[in-house]
Design a binder for these strands. Structure first.
Length: 269
DNA sequence: AGTCACCTGATT
DNA sequence: AATCAGGTGACT
């Protein structure tokens, strides 16, 4: 479920709920979810205080006292939040952390594709180097986007979703940004006209900023994934519906095994 | 650059 | 029963 905006909402929620909280104990209900595997490793956070929580791309990073870090990736169905009592945990809870005040932080993930890794600072730095710029950060300029796309023959949509090139754009917002910029998703990235790159840059930021706002607003209920995608989404998941700009039917295609939605009239090749 | 694997649940 | 799912990494 989560792309950058939803992950960002999770992080802000955790900040409010659990930053500076002390972990009493850790329970792993599904061994494959944590790495390095086993209770011994993940157990190192027991007795430590969560000093800060932040986001890089779609990763959630937590620093605990004594220089221990957790790197969480929600993949498709993960979610992370605090509940008042451990007994309230849902069926899909894979890992949970009892806090010293009696509350509990839950990593829920029905499909169990996500991961919770115990890492050191070097691994956080390495991760940072492997990932492209944050699309909502100052460093993500029109010029930077132009450099990212320049000379690339691959279709522009999968390129936008490549986390090494730009960090945090997923399947929904890639489709949405291309619709706003009127660019065909299959167009070779390097062939997108300079003027359109500028529009695309603005569209990416606009779409993500809007989603960051609504994701947070709708994330107030722990345990519930946001319905943010149903609000302000123009093409994603709307095959057969009419394009709000020109009335033409929205089409679906598959790129790299993922659904892409677009308007063939607005987004001409 | 494309395909599959990882998993489970919802929907057709 | 079959297909689909908002992500990523490991293959070819």
């Amino acid at each position: 479920m989560p792309e950058l905006p939803e992950v960002d909402a999770v992080v802000r929620r955790l900040r409010e709920a659990a930053e500076k909280a002390r972990v009493e104990s850790v329970v792993v209900e599904r061994a494959g979810t944590v790495a390095p595997q086993g209770m011994e490793e993940i157990g190192v956070v027991a007795g430590r205080r969560m000093e800060r929580v932040w986001r890089r791309a779609k990763y959630i990073l937590m620093e605990f006292s004594g220089g221990v870090y957790l790197r969480v990736h929600l993949r498709m169905t993960g979610n992370l939040y605090v509940l008042p009592d451990w007994r309230l945990r849902p069926v899909g809870a894979r890992v949970w952390w009892r806090l010293s005040d009696g509350r509990v932080m839950i990593y829920e993930d029905p499909r169990a594709l996500g991961r919770v890794h115990v890492v050191g600072w070097e691994e956080i730095e390495a991760l940072d180097r492997e990932l492209g710029p944050e699309p909502l950060g100052e460093e993500f300029t029109v010029g930077v986007l132009r450099e990212i796309l320049r000379g690339v023959k691959a279709p522009v949509k999968p390129v936008l979703m490549d986390q090494r090139r730009v960090a945090g754009i997923g399947n929904i917002y890639a489709s949405e940004a291309l619709w706003w910029a009127r660019i065909h998703p299959g167009r070779p990235a390097g062939e997108v006209a300079a003027g359109k790159v500028k529009v695309l840059h603005g569209a990416i930021r606009k779409v993500l900023e809007h989603a960051v706002g609504s994701a947070y607003a709708e994330y107030t209920q722990p345990g519930k994934m946001a319905e943010s995608e149903s609000f302000g989404v123009e093409v994603y998941g709307r095959e057969g519906e009419r394009c709000s700009r020109c009335g033409t039917g929205v089409e679906r295609m598959v790129q790299g095994g993922r659904s892409t939605f677009y308007c063939r009239r607005c987004q001409a090749w």
